[in-house]
Design a protein around this nucleic acid. Structure first.
Lengths: 113, 113
DNA sequence: GAAAACAATAGACCATTGTCCATGGTTTGG
DNA sequence: CCAAACCATGGACAATGGTCTATTGTTTTC
């Protein structure tokens, strides 16, 4: 599909899609037309964009996501890939823990008000 | 205490302490010396900085923290303050949920590798 | 009493994460 | 056929959250 449709269906703006693509988080291929150079975005970019959006919401950086993409798709070395992803999981759990603590603190504050 | 000691004990750099203070997240008072204008940072700034650091790690923005500070300390209106903090708690829980989902996804990816 | 360490202020600088704009070409609907 | 909508590229712009530097004055330490 073309970028407009992808944007429409994913809820991610064209600009952001291009930004992600420039940063290697998604991939498109040349379209089939001879008269233009419109890119073709395969269906599964929908899935990837959903993940990327979720991950960004969860607080992961573009750099984090690049690490994951590199690990899972460029991975000649399975062991290294697993380590990268395992590390990201740890970081996320750490962050979850921080959030829990802050929530507790805020709930205490609410009591005191 | 002076800013250097606060930085040392809190693990937050002078620059960042000043940045937070400029943005109203912490407060100092004039020192007692007549010959300089070094600020005096009360002991409880240690506690506040710990909270701020945690909250930043949890993904809260400076603006979020300003809202909380304004709600808790400038609060003439208790009800409004509670609403502000309640809203922040909701946002944090939402984020926690996002993180959980991303962790699940990454753990699935690990299986597949 | 001089050097080293510390403080205040102001402004420049930086990375990150988009978003917007200009330009120029292509496709499509009426 | 032609205007409106779409696409690609490149670069400018913006907000956020610090971080660094320069300058000038103060305190501490040897």
């Amino acid at each position: 599909m073309k970028i407009g449709e992808l944007a429409e269906r994913s809820g991610v703006t064209r600009d952001t899609i291009r930004f992600y693509e420039r940063n290697g988080l998604i991939r498109s291929r040349p379209g089939q037309s001879a008269t233009n150079n419109y890119r073709d975005y395969p269906e599964d970019n929908l899935f990837q964009l959903e993940f990327l959006t979720r991950a960004r919401d969860a607080g992961m950086s573009i750099a984090d996501l690049q690490d994951i993409v590199n690990a899972t798709e460029g991975s000649c070395d399975m062991e290294a890939a697993k380590n990268v992803i395992g590390a990201k999981i740890s970081e996320l759990k750490e962050r979850e823990e921080q959030i829990r603590k802050v929530v507790l603190f805020l709930e205490e504050s609410l009591q005191k008000l």
